[in-house]
Simulated scan of single mutants.
Amino acid sequence: MDNDDVAADAALFARLRHVWETVDPVPADLIDRMVAAVAVHDLSREYALLTLTSASDLAAVRGESDTATLQFSDGKTGVLLHISATEHGARRVDGWVDADALAIRLVRGDQEWTRDAAEHGRFAFDDVTPGLVRLILVVRTSDGIREFQTPQFEL
């Protein structure tokens, strides 16, 4: 390929680009919309809204200081978790999901606990060793089947 061929190809591509820019121009806000869409997707997937609802001020007086209530939501699916310590130092996780959960997993590294949702979206994990975990649910929504993940949290 010589310089004349390269110049001819460049001119042809320039004319094609001009035609497409005239016939079907890129929307002015396309880049901003795409950046926002990716940011929202990442936020809903990796940074689901975490609200820590502390135990009441009386909990320490009542001896229930080893409990916590966590709420996760991405705007479409919500999960409420109540975490309590067992007599043996393990944790019990009681949960409720407001979507049709097809699979519920509590994951820590290579360890995984699986449960099915009962009536009203209730589920529980018994005797889970303390540490960082993540809850992963496969839910059915009006948009189809999708995965919901919480950020890691401490048991």
Rank of each mutant, 00 (worst) to 15 (best):
E21K: 15
A36C: 01
S142Y: 05
R140S: 12
T141V: 09
L12W: 04
Q152E: 14
E87I: 02
D24T: 14
D66C: 08
V23E: 09
T141K: 02
Q71F: 04
R115N: 12
L58G: 10
M1H: 09
A118F: 08
G89F: 08
A90Y: 00
V139Y: 04
A7L: 15
T114F: 00
L81N: 14
I136M: 13
S84E: 08
R108S: 15
T67E: 12
V107Y: 02
M1P: 08
L70Q: 11
P27Q: 08
V79K: 04
L137E: 07
V26C: 13
P151E: 13
V139L: 04
L30G: 01
T86I: 01
F13N: 14
V97W: 08
R115S: 14
S54W: 04
L102T: 04
R45N: 11
Q71N: 09
G63Y: 00
L58N: 01
V38H: 09
P25I: 12
H120C: 01
R33E: 12
I145N: 04
F148P: 00
L135R: 05
T114E: 08
V79S: 04
E119N: 05
H41Y: 09
A11V: 01
D32R: 09
Q152H: 11
A14H: 11
D9M: 15
S84T: 06
T77V: 15
V26D: 06
S142W: 06
A124C: 07
D143N: 04
R92G: 01
D116M: 07
T53E: 10
A39S: 13
D5K: 12
T69Q: 15
A48S: 13
E87V: 06
A101K: 07
V19A: 09
V128D: 05
A103T: 03
S56T: 05
F72S: 05
A99M: 02
F148D: 00
R146E: 15
T86W: 03
V97G: 00
L102W: 01
A28N: 08
D127I: 03
G121W: 13
G75Y: 10
L49Q: 09
R17C: 01
L70F: 10
S73A: 09
S84V: 02
S142Q: 11
V133S: 12
A14E: 11
E154Q: 14
S44T: 12
T129V: 13
S44N: 12
D74M: 05
L137S: 05
W96G: 00
I83N: 09
L70E: 13
G89A: 10
V6A: 14
I104D: 00
F153L: 04
R62L: 15
H18C: 02
L132G: 07
D126Q: 12
G109P: 03
D42S: 09
V139M: 02
A7N: 15
R15Q: 13
D5P: 03
T22N: 11
F148Q: 02
S44P: 00
D42N: 14
D110F: 02
R122Q: 11
R146S: 10
R146T: 13
S84L: 01
A118Y: 09
F148H: 03
L135A: 10
V23L: 12
L58C: 03
E46Y: 14
E112C: 14
G131C: 05
A101G: 04
M34T: 10
I136T: 14
A117I: 02
W113P: 03
A103F: 01
L43H: 11
P25E: 12
A28T: 15
D9H: 07
E119I: 05
D5M: 09
L135K: 03
L132H: 08
L70V: 03
L70G: 13
V97C: 11
A99G: 00
